[in-house]
Design a protein around this nucleic acid. Structure first.
Lengths: 140, 140
DNA sequence: AGCTTATTGTTCGTACACAAACATAGACCT
DNA sequence: AGGTCTATGTTTGTGTACGAACAATAAGCT
């Protein structure tokens, strides 16, 4: 039996499906939380949940490289949601913390953020959801 | 029993996992196919598999909006992989086709492109793979 | 102390991704 | 024919993403 190894079916490639699922997810996120992007929310959430941190360390925890986290933090600082100061013990470090405004906004949006995950997974049944998340986590 | 509805665990949100899985996939793609990006390859592949098409139509088939597909096609044209001409029947349309160079490059890379999907799904077992792809396709 | 190496943050260049506003061209309808 | 609606492509602006190169600082080693 000759299998069609030469045929490339775009719609069956993981990358393509991942891209489409991400597109849908981003649309859902933008609907639920119009005033923050997913990465901005992730950074703010980490600062609120885990406390002050250096910029690079925060980037590592939120899976953003140094160049990316910089842009995200710049925008959060411009919005007054995050404050920054030099670390007295290490002159290279910038210590970041959520401002009171940032914390308030975070707390006001957590419920919607959880709704985003719910809505994104809505096409799946309860058990499919668990299965999907477990498998997705393995591809990290 | 009080459930922690207020706690937001980043690492359990679909969006975060999708982003990380995508990051890993992009890294694998860049290793296997350094001379094209995933979107560029997708556009080229569609043109090779499905034949000439208008720019917007190609965008729809590859899940890119008009602004995005334009940039992708501009870069493919700059590399000489895609040729473009006005549609005689509809003066708005740009008819795109893979050049002979483009077709040759595509054929030389299909095997690697399939390896990308294989490598990306490598952490999963055979049956997990099918399950995952089926569920992922539902979130589209 | 002096040298080396690693870490932190910045900047630049490239490439998606989408919203919004725009110009042009077809299609349709009365 | 004239008017409306839709489709096609372009442009601009904002926001991720990442690689590469860089300066400043810290840490470790001899």
């Amino acid at each position: 039996m000759e299998s069609d190894t030469t045929e490339y079916i775009l719609d069956r490639q993981v990358g393509f499906l991942l891209r489409r699922a991400t597109q849908r997810h981003l649309a859902i996120f933008a609907t639920q939380i119009p005033d923050l992007t997913p990465t901005q929310f992730a950074a703010l959430a980490k600062l609120c949940e885990a406390g002050p941190e250096s910029q690079n360390a925060l980037g590592r925890q939120t899976a953003m490289d140094a160049a990316t986290i910089k842009g995200v933090i710049d925008r959060l600082r411009a919005k007054g949601l995050v404050t920054a100061g030099r670390d007295p013990g290490d002159q290279r470090r910038i210590t970041l913390a959520a401002s009171s405004q940032g914390r308030a906004l975070y707390e006001a949006r957590v419920a919607q953020a959880q709704a985003v995950t719910r809505d994104t997974l809505a096409p799946l049944t309860e058990s499919e959801r668990d299965c999907f998340l477990a498998l997705l986590a393995k591809l990290t």
